[in-house]
Design a binder for these strands. Structure first.
Lengths: 273, 273
DNA sequence: CTTGACTCTCCCGTATATGGAGGGTGTATA
DNA sequence: TATACACCCTCCATATACGGGAGAGTCAAG
């Protein structure tokens, strides 16, 4: 029987860790002095410690190791645990690989002197959303203002409860020269009747929505679109539906294209190429 | 200005997380009510939050993100942080890859019905070690006993302080039929003179030592050697020096080949192929 | 005024240890 | 025998990035 320090030197596992393994029941000393609480280990416990280290090296949590060492597992259960571990490692490798790709894109941007783009893209999940909307073709985006007037007048007339920021859907797959197919939407709760012009429906939930925020005048929002489109392309995604433009902080007055305090969020549903 | 719940819904970041970011100074609400402590956020803070999320996606710790967002970093420093991150990710991928290989070896063993080998191999680092030794060629390993007698008699005569378990070095690169080149070593501290037969020297430190413990009679230690050799081969390592055999619990009597309580550790210095 | 949704702070828990304070123990040597 | 010094003990705190829940206060609508 040897004391903890010698056992630690033998195994190159720190005393603190050995005490911790004792505490969690993973490796109890063969004897603990009743009066001094000194821990005494036996040489043959070294093989159990090595088994613990080997399993830890495979990435198992100490609790899993406890169960594996308890010895009351069927071969099938053991196999299942190891297979689960294998799947987890594979999953992590995929994640790290994607992370690495993102880091390398950033590094290239820094090298090209872009320091750090003013636009940061995040991928969010979006829930289905009940909206009232007006959809029409207008010559250019700013003309959507008339649609907003129409929609808001209707909603106020029906005293609908608006449950989120207003947004516009851009239904054109390509950026048109003229004639934009735009749907202006207001999230609502409760029952609001539709009409020929006013469409009450649920926007679909989106598993992966690439999102960016544009702070500043609406007139310069094109930069945000460019940054987002580039990001989607560079990171190996593809746009799979109409873009959404959320008017988080509505300009003052609402049709002011140059209010520097406006805040918009642009969203595009995407999927991996 | 919006309350935390709305900001949370907008960003799909939990309220708890937002409060935590406030606490650690990563994202403070623009306003906190003096009386109610309610947090109020502004829409334009969403872009800062997105930047945080984007950097978190790259795997940066929140503290790193704080520094990156503080804005007082030179481009070079920023670049260095990102490069460091890149290196870390690569390192982790290498580790995970090795881990995966180990898990798959284990899985194959389980499938072949070996359940779990009785021998677990760990790689340790070994420090240089001062020893007194006697080296000679003996017909078979058990005959090393005579060398032990010689060494121990000398050490006791010089009242040397023995500082660790005795060990034997096997200098033959291949397993010989006859005539083993064995060096029996005793770790010592302090000054002990050498002689023609007694060599006092320092065993080299080893960066990677593959180790296994054999519990049981010395006569069956061959199994442990086999398991260790197989492991080294299967895991893509190579033996790069003489093996060491530590007599952790010396049999009783010392030359008893069948004491079931004996404990030995076998070590081989290795490197990646 | 009530109701129900919202928010606050505070405390605990996670996993795997590491570091330190303060105090007892074992052994070799002066 | 006294002392020095290495060794060991328990208890507490710390790190990450939050999540859960208790208990109490706040806000807006009806």
């Amino acid at each position: 029987m040897i004391r903890i320090g010698d056992f630690s030197k033998l195994s190159r596992v720190s005393i603190k860790t050995l005490r911790y393994y004792d505490e969690v029941g993973l490796l109890k000393p063969v004897h603990v002095d009743r009066f001094t609480s000194y821990r005494y280990y036996d040489y043959h416990q070294l093989s159990r410690l090595y088994r613990i280290l080997a399993l830890k090296d495979l990435g198992f949590a100490l609790e899993d190791i406890s169960r594996l060492l308890a010895g009351n597992l069927a071969v099938g259960q053991m196999q299942a645990m190891v297979q689960l571990r294998q799947a987890e490692i594979r999953q992590r490798m995929v994640e790290e690989l994607e992370r690495l790709a993102r880091v390398e894109i950033l590094l290239r941007q820094i090298e090209q002197g872009e320091i750090m783009s003013n636009y940061d893209i995040v991928i969010k999940q979006i829930e289905p959303l009940l909206v009232a909307s007006v959809r029409d073709v207008v010559p250019t985006p700013p003309e959507q203002y008339s649609l907003w007037g129409e929609l808001m007048a209707y909603l106020e007339g029906n005293s609908a409860y608006m449950s989120g920021p207003p947004m516009a859907l851009y239904h054109d797959a390509e950026v048109p020269e003229q004639d934009w197919d735009i749907e202006v939407c207001m999230p609502i709760v409760g029952l609001v009747p539709g009409t020929k012009r006013i469409n009450v429906h649920t926007l679909p939930g989106i598993a992966m929505m690439a999102c960016v925020v544009h702070n500043g005048p609406f007139a310069t929002i094109g930069q945000a679109y460019d940054a987002l489109a580039r990001w989607i392309d560079e990171h190996g995604y593809r746009i799979v539906g109409p873009g959404r433009e959320l008017n988080l902080r509505v300009p003052d007055p609402p049709n002011n294209q140059n209010d520097p305090n406006a805040v918009n969020e642009i969203q595009f549903p995407i999927e991996k190429v």
